[in-house]
């Protein structure tokens, strides 16, 4: 229990990850799925950023001539967060584009309904 309290950021990140993960998998609505995906990515970013953060230290930009590495936080996880944001933005854009295309065709966002409509379309052909 004590380790849950000291690692509260990580715990929040894991909870958010699970929320995002389950909504991505289980929600029927495509837009909610995409929101779930974004929550999942945000959780990963939070986890990463918290790992690189050192209490009381600042971003690794040399100010006032302080050059010792120990005065700054670890910059690598921040770099990874940036990469991960870029990835999640592009993935979200693609998913939204696919959703728009499906909505134009079937006028619904429910995956199950789209599935039935698509099957019917194939059968009619």
């Amino acid at each position: 229990m004590a380790s849950f309290l000291t690692n509260n950021v990580e715990v929040v990140a894991i909870v958010l990850f699970s929320i995002g993960f389950t909504s991505l998998l289980l929600h029927k609505n495509l837009v909610k799925k995409i929101i779930g995906l974004n929550i999942m990515d945000t959780a990963v970013d939070l986890f990463l950023a918290s790992m690189g953060y050192v209490q009381g230290k600042t971003a690794p930009i040399v100010e006032n001539g302080i050059v010792e590495a120990s005065s700054y936080i670890n910059p690598l996880p921040s770099g990874l967060v940036l990469t991960s944001i870029v990835v999640s933005v592009s993935v979200t854009a693609l998913m939204l584009a696919l959703t728009v295309r499906l909505y134009h065709r079937y006028h619904t966002l429910n995956v199950d309904e789209i599935y039935l409509l698509a099957r019917e379309e194939v059968r009619r052909k």
Partner: peptide, 24 residues
């Protein structure tokens, strides 16, 4: 086609779950 787009959405969902887990 509608079927391909739907299949692509499903593929993406599974792939994204997979890469999310991998990243974690």
């Amino acid at each position: 086609t509608g079927r391909t787009t739907l299949a692509a959405v499903r593929y993406m969902i599974f792939s994204l779950v997979g890469s999310g887990l991998f990243l974690m």
